[in-house]
């Protein structure tokens, strides 16, 4: 079973030059992007949802389930993105990431802790030199409604504080009004801002906020646009908008990264985030990853769950499988925000 691997020292590619090559144009214009993105095959909504529902019915039991639970735990980006976040809460979450289940030290660690930019230093300090990464949301998360200068400053700030990964949001307003070039340029610029200046760079996850994209066709276009602009990961949602990470949407994104590899030879990761709360849900996603994108994506290098409560349910299921008895919330470290003031 795979664990977190090193951040790839993939040098920042010139996204615009590559896009020109791929699109076969001499100058990257909005019209060229529109022609390309709208030339992608449309998504069969009914077929896609039926396929997702079908994949959700697979029965995963015993040792396979144990393996899936451990894999799912290792893929979690343990997330706290609240206005009420405190340094203490972030340290608590980091402690939980380091020792998810104090009663069973063989429990794998989540892939990363995901926090707001101003909490990166705290998280980094709490996690020390462990293999748990720190992901920071940036670019005026969750709305993305800020000037480009501020978005870039937000990103650079988080990278400087030690973030291993940056979760950016795209400008959905620009995307929906057909201004694909703006979205492309913003992603490409944020990619550059992820550069640490020492030859390495933070991995960039591009949040498309699929709940605001209206159609599956738009999800497919946004996926391709994000990959074309240099995103290392495509991510469904901020978690602040419903619906968030649905199985059909994730399926479309997995098709996109599979086809992107066929086209360019590069792998791009997928991160569904928001609304995945139970082990059963998580296993459905893993089945879909395996069936659509392939086993190469079944590692936390290429697939993540953005979640906060999912870890607790996975731990309950894990305890159930190791002890033989159903477990309860009293046997899981409580990481819910404190309401006792």
């Amino acid at each position: 079973m795979s664990t977190t691997t090193e951040t790839p020292s993939r040098t920042a590619i010139d996204a615009t030059a590559r896009a020109r090559d791929l699109l076969g144009v001499s100058r990257l214009t909005n019209q060229a992007l529109t022609t390309w993105l709208h030339g992608l095959p449309g998504v069969d909504q009914v077929g896609c949802e039926a396929r997702a529902a079908g994949l959700g019915t697979r029965s995963i039991k015993t040792t396979s389930k144990q393996w899936a639970i451990d894999l799912a735990i290792s893929m979690i980006d343990l997330t706290t993105l609240e206005g009420a976040d405190t340094h203490g809460r972030v340290r608590g979450l980091a402690a939980k990431a380091l020792v998810p289940d104090p009663s069973d030290l063989s429990t794998p660690r989540p892939a990363a802790v995901c926090v707001y930019g101003d909490m990166v230093a705290t998280a980094k300090q709490a996690l020390g030199d462990s293999d748990v990464k720190v992901a920071a949301v940036a670019t005026a998360f969750p709305s993305g409604r800020a000037s480009m200068a501020i978005k870039l400053a937000d990103t650079k700030d988080a990278v400087k504080a030690g973030a291993d990964e940056i979760d950016m949001v795209i400008d959905r307003g620009a995307f929906l009004s057909g201004d694909y070039l703006t979205v492309f340029n913003q992603i490409a610029e944020v990619t550059k801002a992820c550069d640490r200046g020492d030859g390495t760079r933070a991995r960039l996850k591009v949040i498309m906020e699929t709940g605001e994209l209206v159609t599956y066709d738009n999800v497919r276009r946004a996926s391709w646009l994000s990959m074309l602009a240099g995103g290392d990961f495509i991510k469904t949602s901020t978690g602040k908008i419903q619906p968030a990470a649905t199985l059909p949407v994730t399926l479309i994104m997995l098709e996109a990264v599979r086809d992107w590899r066929d086209l360019t030879g590069e792998m791009v990761g997928v991160k569904p985030a928001g609304g995945i709360k139970t082990s059963k849900d998580a296993i459905k996603f893993l089945v879909t990853v395996s069936e659509i994108a392939g086993e190469d994506w079944l590692t936390n290098q290429w697939f993540r769950f953005g979640a906060s409560s999912l870890l607790n349910d996975l731990l309950l299921q894990r305890q159930r499988m190791t002890t033989g008895a159903y477990s309860g919330a009293n046997y899981i470290a409580d990481d819910s925000p404190s309401t006792a003031y």
Binding site: Y326, S327, A329
Partner: peptide
């Protein structure tokens, strides 16, 4: 048996 071993009961 499952209820008697259930840790949340």
């Amino acid at each position: 048996p499952w209820l008697s071993s259930h840790r949340d009961v």
